[in-house]
Design a protein around this nucleic acid. Structure first.
Lengths: 211, 211, 211, 211
DNA sequence: TATGAATGAGTCTTCATTCAT
DNA sequence: AATGAATGAAGACTCATTCAT
């Protein structure tokens, strides 16, 4: 009682309960989206896995789209932190780190990545969110290219168009190899990262002797 | 048509009718898929546009997936013929032609391209077909790279992995820019083709002075 | 076969079937609306009573509102034909006939009348339909009053306002006595008609000695 | 308030709190019923407007029906006091006053009036309350008519039936014009009151020359 | 071959009410 | 007295597919 923590108020206890429920729902949602994809995921499946009444879902989310958004935010959180590249240092390493981040993120949550694709085709809000997210990434790539051009290291190409193309390359390679047709025995993440990094590097950087 | 043909048997007449109906359905299906996408397309919408009864659809197609497959076969036909690149000549021109083919094909049938993506996420058969189709394309790219390597023009890289990455780049750029979010004021096809070709070329070919 | 009737075409046979189904649904809808009112009536209740699948309902009606509209049209049909008064003859008889028509119509289908009231409060389309229907009736009453004024028989009063008030009187008496609170032992239709007619007559017509 | 009162006991303080809460809820309920009508009013909307938890509602009311009843009691209170006509004086003025009271009451709380109608169709208890309330009013009208008949002023008609009809006329005119379809450019309250009064008067009172 | 009426499974969402704290 | 999280029942509507004619 003399400690600097306030006694747990009535509301904080309830809050704790609510948070638990919310977490159960969010975890369940993540799992179901991962397994079933966006459209095939039903509210009932989520609440059922979370051992909750259906109505409880709507206490914590507006609707399926909202729940997916929150699941994405969490997974994205991890992905974005990975994407928080070091922009300083060896160009090749920077490139590699960027490529690695994206591919690893998709490889880690292939079902969610696939659901994102599916959700975007089904729901304009999800599409808009994703496109906005992509735009940020591409913008950063464009900035990197521009900076390297200023330093005389990168070739003379339109930074934004190049960023679009290179970002697309990484993204689609990742989605195709790890989120679509996952039955194929894809090459390991590392080999893929190496190959893509190599292409990216030579596409952007100038004169490297013989390659 | 005048006399040297046997009088059309009853069955051939019937066959002719059936072919007409089939064609109407196929045209209608193509249009509706283009407009609505895969999931949003209903059998009723197709038969309605074809001025046919709903049941008639099932005389000519097994189900929606089958109809989409047949639509795709026709459109693909056109797309693949465009992809029938000239593999001889100036490497840069070969590259450009390949890039151009893919982007133009998507730009010409954006709705179908989007529906293909959507259908693949919804239906394993469609996904498998697409993946098979992709594999052919990628295989050809890999062969091209290998050949250029033999000729000493291309750098030393894994042809298949590189083909995957480069094919993905072109494909996803095309889909993103022309089939998804088409409201964005995308750069013209030509500018995009130039930019992608340039990246591809420098990524693959060796030593080009300063770039 | 030699008669002038065409042999029943395939479609007419099917049409007949469809008409039967439609009739079953319409009858069922009328009964359920009559029993349960507007809101409490569910599609399932209707199709269940009609021994039909739920989907079949939507083959014949757009939705509940539409079905109610069609039920109303039939019942209304009967009511309107009753309301197709003779506008010539003894003023008192005209008045009586009008009053009688409305009250009898409600007394004959009290549940539907109640459902109409309920539906109007729930659904703007239904409300609009009813209001339009009322407007016609009131307009006719107003015309009658105006005519009687021209003939020097009716008092000098605003025909439209009077029509509103008198129409409301009949309508609400009917609804209250026969559609709401039907548990009360209401006076017989005839006594009510007499009383209302008498009030109406004296309210409108001029100088009748002592009454 | 200053000193001659005993110090408020803990329970009376609590009571005071409760009364405040109750009042907030009642005010909120009145406002929401007025705005949304009976069915569309949710407990959540009421407690939300009252800045109260949902559970609190059930400490003060049994359910929605009960809350509406209490709201009605308050509003009715006001309405009934208006209906506390002067039963002495010029017959025409008495009539006018009665008509005016009803119409003004509805015009003052159109939403509540509409909700009453709606609630009556939804809930037997509300319907019974209303019917009981109506009965009192009609009874008084009947008494007035009987009295006027004794005085030789009113015509020879069944007082109760006439009261039903005349009460209905006023009530339904008011509800229609001011609580339902309020978008119509209704005639002003005064014009309507005049017209209805005029009809009522001539319907009931005897021999007034030419009108 | 063509018809089109019939089927019925499947899903989101709202809301009055309860109850542990 | 107050809280507010949790409950779970209830209902409209779509659509791929079948089948008797």
């Amino acid at each position: 009682m003399t400690s600097d923590e306030p006694p747990p108020s009535r509301s904080s206890l309830r809050q704790e309960r609510a948070d638990t429920t919310r977490r159960q729902l969010l975890d369940a949602a993540r799992d179901v989206f991962e397994e079933k994809g966006y459209r095939a995921t039903t509210i009932r499946a989520i609440t059922s896995r979370a051992s909750t009444a259906q109505g409880t879902f709507y206490l914590h989310f507006e609707n399926k789209e909202d729940a997916f958004g929150q699941v994405l935010a969490e997974v994205w959180q991890g992905m974005l932190s990975m994407v928080d590249w070091e922009w300083e240092g060896d160009p090749r390493e920077i490139t590699r780190s960027a490529v690695q981040s994206v591919i690893a993120a998709v490889a880690m949550h292939p079902g969610i990545a696939r659901a994102l694709l599916e959700g975007s085709l089904d729901n304009e809000t999800i599409e808009a969110r994703w496109m906005a997210s992509r735009a940020v990434l591409i913008e950063r790539i464009a900035e990197l290219i521009a900076k390297e051009q200023s330093a005389g290291r990168a070739r003379d190409l339109d930074p934004l168009l190049a960023a679009h193309a290179l970002g697309s390359m990484v993204e689609w390679v990742a989605l195709n190899r790890y989120a679509l047709a996952p039955e194929r025995h894809a090459p390991g993440v590392d080999a893929m990262v190496d190959a893509v990094t190599d292409l990216w590097y030579h596409a952007v950087y100038r004169g490297h002797g013989s390659g």
